[in-house]
């Protein structure tokens, strides 16, 4: 397990995963909601870094823009508009939390076991191309043009829907 060569990629991976996991754990453990959102943003940025390591530069940018930017801001707006108490009250449902913890750990155990057991084919990994954005753009507008259009329609519908939902009903 530890007989791996310490390449630059690997060191970067360790750093990013540390950021991701600690961010996630902090997010769960913080009591102030704003702190949670900040640590979540750290997780998103860590994942963006992982995308770079995986030769997906375009996705990394999208991740930073959409998640670390838009989604986090949206969450903060949501927090502000629902003007809840500043801090998260401690959960009183001890048994419930315990059972969820057991379930989550058991699921992780199963996943861990499955990943460790699986023999992954040692094929040539995808080589970094000259222009990742160009390749994705070509694919999007040739082979995946229909899903692309559908996803744009979905986005439009979602945004209109959320406006309708969140709008104060004037005549009430």
């Amino acid at each position: 397990m530890f007989n791996i060569e310490w390449t630059g990629e690997y060191i970067a991976f360790i750093v990013f995963s540390a950021v991701i996991i600690s961010g996630a754990v902090f997010m769960i453990n913080f009591t102030k909601v704003v702190h949670m959102v900040v640590s979540l943003a750290a997780v998103f940025i860590g994942i963006a870094g992982m995308f770079v390591l995986l030769n997906a530069e375009f996705l990394a940018f999208v991740q930073v823009l959409v998640y670390a930017g838009a989604v986090s801001i949206l969450m903060i707006f949501g927090i502000m508009m629902t003007k809840h108490k500043e801090s998260e009250t401690e959960s009183k449902r001890g048994l419930h939390s315990l059972l969820v913890g057991i379930g989550a750990v058991a699921l992780f155990g199963i996943l861990f076991y499955a990943i460790r057991q699986t023999e992954f084919p040692q094929e040539q990994p995808l080589q970094a191309v000259e222009d990742n954005t160009l390749e994705i753009g070509k694919l999007l507008f040739t082979g995946y043009v229909v899903p692309f259009e559908i996803i744009s329609v979905l986005l439009t519908v979602a945004f209109i829907g959320s406006i309708v939902l969140a709008k104060k009903e004037a005549n009430e």
Partner: peptide, 20 residues
């Protein structure tokens, strides 16, 4: 919803353990 989710997870774990 969270209780239902909990039961779903536990059920999933048991199912996987039972089958696999």
């Amino acid at each position: 919803v969270q209780t239902y989710g909990l039961i779903t997870i536990l059920g999933l774990v048991i199912l996987i353990i039972a089958v696999v």
